[in-house]
Design a protein around this nucleic acid. Structure first.
Lengths: 275, 275
DNA sequence: TATTCCGATAGTGAC
DNA sequence: GTCACTATCGGAATGAG
């Protein structure tokens, strides 16, 4: 008899990525998959919508090449680019799904970010696909927030990483180093700045309350837009009873925001979506 | 109408020390007084018994000279010594009161420490007189504990301060400097060591649990002593019905440990005395 | 840059 | 080295057949 190690499963994405049949994963984990990728729910979503697109382990790449962004970018350049392009294709499909769900639940769409963390505790490469709000009860620590801030520098947008491939080779070589100490500083230092308005907040609770306000403002703004549009439509087409938009929605839509709440019963500012 | 300052009353001991009639203080604050000193309950006792002996402000010394130990020791040497001797006399009376209360409540006595903090936030000199246990729910922080550890160096025993006066002048001049940065390091650096057994503890909760155990051992030891003594007394004087020891106790004894508990309902290790 | 738990640390406000 | 409150920082443990 052997004793199992008392460590968390930091390689769980690798086990997903090595499955011959991703559909053996439960639907609470798997959103979708392609020949080259699979998409899972982030277990600790830092935005209202948050998924991870993971490259499947298949020739010519082994698990070792796909450990993280740095290990991928140390592979042959065209190979690395192909992996990124495959992730990009899957991520764009996920983006469409999210946008459909946004329309269903909120009646409007907002931005969706796709990008990597240059350093990660989880042992398999994963592309974050998340809605542009950073509004979630799981958003708890400064490093959580700064790791997704869209202009701080830690969150590496996929389009930027792809652009490195088209730059001069010296730039490519410099960027793919992904120096850990450089990126660590970005998370710890600097203030907490609202990614919407760039205002500095003094603490995470204050930041979360502010993000709540910003999302509320967005909702109010978009609802006012809808209201104006509805009034125009009422005037122009008051005799039309059925809308065609219903038909554009998929027959079955995955529930993309399965469980909100931080798992505790502790009521916190920003813990709930605005009503 | 004037607005009270938004600061804590760091000079409250000074206001006590300037009272022409100390008995105007309520008995929940004042324990006793003399021509030169008064003794108050420490509002946040760090031992089972904990009092502060405060020099009264009277000629030739002003409040400024009595701000803290350093300011006193910068006065003319014989004047400073006289203040310390007056504090010593009052403290010895307090010590006797505590020992009587120890006998009443615990049936045995243990050591009592008398000494100063070389740096203090409170603005008037005060001599700590406290039982040698450091066992109290108000003992919460490392700096609390280390500031009373009897051999760490921060707690300046009165008898040691008095000995400076009899040393060579160069030693006296060196000691009365009371360099703040030196003493600050003593509170922050170094481990938490049990003052009974010198064992290092890794955290305050562990230390408090250990101090609880040490006080329990003391209690058990002393109770065993008493039991042995009682058995000898039973054999030798079984015919004597009335003991003389009752008469030695004062007719009225101040309640020296007025309120235990840390003011919250939060049950903490070491928060209660051993039963 | 997995989370969670515990505790130490740091800043603030205190009427 | 006043306290009490809030929040941050820092290490260690963490799962599951």
């Amino acid at each position: 008899m052997t004793t199992a190690p008392s460590t968390p499963n930091l390689a769980i994405f690798r086990s997903y990525a090595s499955k011959p049949d991703p559909t053996s994963l439960p639907p609470s984990i798997l959103l979708s998959h392609s020949e080259t990728c699979l998409t899972v729910f982030d277990a600790f979503p830092k935005s209202i919508f948050h998924f991870l697109v993971i490259p499947r382990i298949q020739p010519p790449l082994s698990a070792r090449h796909l450990t993280d962004l740095r290990s991928l970018l140390q592979c042959e350049k065209s190979t690395a680019r192909e992996v990124l392009m495959n992730l990009n294709k899957e991520a764009n499909n996920v983006k469409k799904l999210i946008e459909e769900e946004m329309m269903k639940l909120y009646k409007f769409k907002w931005d969706i970010w796709m990008g990597f963390h240059p350093i990660s505790s989880m042992e398999h490469l994963h592309l974050h696909v998340l809605s542009a709000d950073l509004y979630s009860p799981k958003m708890k620590l400064k490093k959580h927030y700064n790791s997704f801030h869209p202009s701080l520098g830690f969150f590496l947008h996929l389009k930027d990483v792809l652009s490195w491939f088209d730059a001069v080779p010296s730039y490519y070589q410099r960027m793919i180093k992904l120096d850990a100490s450089h990126y660590e500083l970005l998370l710890k230092d600097g203030d907490l700045c609202c990614w919407w308005c760039d205002r500095a907040l003094v603490s995470m609770p204050k930041l979360k309350a502010h993000l709540h306000d910003e999302f509320d403002k967005l909702t109010t703004r978009e609802n006012a837009k809808l209201e104006r549009k509805r009034k125009r439509t009422d005037v122009l087409a008051s005799s039309v009873q059925a809308s065609a938009t219903d038909d554009e929605r998929p027959e079955k839509v995955a529930r993309l925001t399965p469980i909100q709440g931080d798992g505790s019963s502790d009521p916190t500012v920003g813990g709930d979506l605005p009503s």
